[in-house]
């Protein structure tokens, strides 16, 4: 994860003073990362957009209480994590890995098709993880956060984060094993 920048620090201070333009800059700096995190957490674009937007709005509402004990990003991701864990995501048909593996060949160009299938398989595996394991894994793998940072973002101890990651990786491996055996990953 990037080090909290002077830019973030300055924008946070200006935001705390009520400068909405500064907060807009913070949103622009973090929207891509936060959307990606929410997408991994809930598995669909609509919920991810809704949660990312809600997290930013809550961050603005609470920014006067942000004490800078963590980076702005970690604080923002903690808000988003709480929203994602508490939200009942849209009902959508559960996609089983076996269904994805049995899907008929697409007419899309082969590489594009394989990439899309790979993404679906990985997301299906993530969807099957308990939310706390999923959050820890996503923050570690995609955001490159240290265990200490993940602990801050999830409100857990580093030891709990370590246990979550051990179980998350074991489960993800198990879920992805059929696809690996069929050489589609």
């Amino acid at each position: 994860m990037k080090q909290p920048t002077d830019q973030d620090t300055e924008l946070v201070v200006r935001s705390k003073a009520g400068d909405l333009a500064a907060f807009e800059e913070l949103v622009k700096l973090h929207e891509r990362g936060l959307f990606a995190y929410m997408y991994r957490m809930c598995g669909n674009r609509d919920d991810a957009e809704e949660l990312a937007q809600a997290a930013f709005v809550r961050a603005w509402g609470g920014i006067s209480g942000f004490r800078g004990e963590s980076s702005f990003k970690t604080w923002l991701f903690r808000i988003a994590t709480n929203l994602a864990i508490n939200k009942r995501t849209r009902t959508r048909p559960t996609v089983e890995l076996s269904e994805l593996l049995a899907a008929p060949e697409s007419r899309q160009p082969e590489e594009s098709f394989r990439r899309k299938r790979r993404e679906e398989l990985v997301q299906a595996a993530l969807d099957r993880l308990p939310k706390d394991q999923r959050a820890a894994l996503v923050l570690s793998v995609y955001e490159g956060m240290s265990y200490k940072e993940i602990a801050r973002a999830l409100g857990k101890t580093v030891r709990a984060v370590d246990s979550l990651l051990v179980r998350a990786k074991q489960n993800a491996r198990r879920f992805l094993e059929p696809a690996r055996k069929r050489n589609v990953l």
Partner: peptide, 25 residues
């Protein structure tokens, strides 16, 4: 396993998210 997960891409972030956030605020 970790590399397989890491290699899966995420869709681009939505357009105008910042605009919508500011509008809601």
């Amino acid at each position: 396993a970790v590399e397989t997960i890491r290699a899966a891409e995420v869709p681009d972030s939505p357009l105008y998210l910042a605009t919508r956030v500011l509008a809601e605020i």
